[in-house]
Amino acid sequence: MGPFVAYWLRWPSMEALMGTDWGWSLCEILHFAGLALLVGIVGMFDLRLLGMAKAVPVAPFRRFLPWAVVGFVLCVVSGLSFVTGIGANLEGVHPYSVLISNGVHPYSVLIANLWLQLKLLFIALAGLNLLAF
């Protein structure tokens, strides 16, 4: 009963979604498309402020920022699926149940992986920077 309740409380189970043949790769595609939109368009904006392509008026160029927000949403959704679905990716590669019984939870990647923490920190900084505009 306990495991069932635990599973149900976590519905929709990201392990189930990311365990499908297409879940992980589909999220990767969305992550890269989002990356191009977000970093590309925000990068254009920043470079414009730094003096590149001076002929572009800054104020109207903000019209393009919603597309960067679309990219951001794509990246957040697919990125969260990577982190919360990481158990599915471990399954089969590692004896997943052994990991769990040793007290290693899949989400410990959030605690253990310094690079992921740095990535999230810098994304947060970039997000604050964008909000300031």
Partner: peptide, 8 residues
């Protein structure tokens, strides 16, 4: 990101 973003 440098190529596709601005192109889009």
């Amino acid at each position: 990101a440098m190529l596709v973003g601005p192109n889009v």
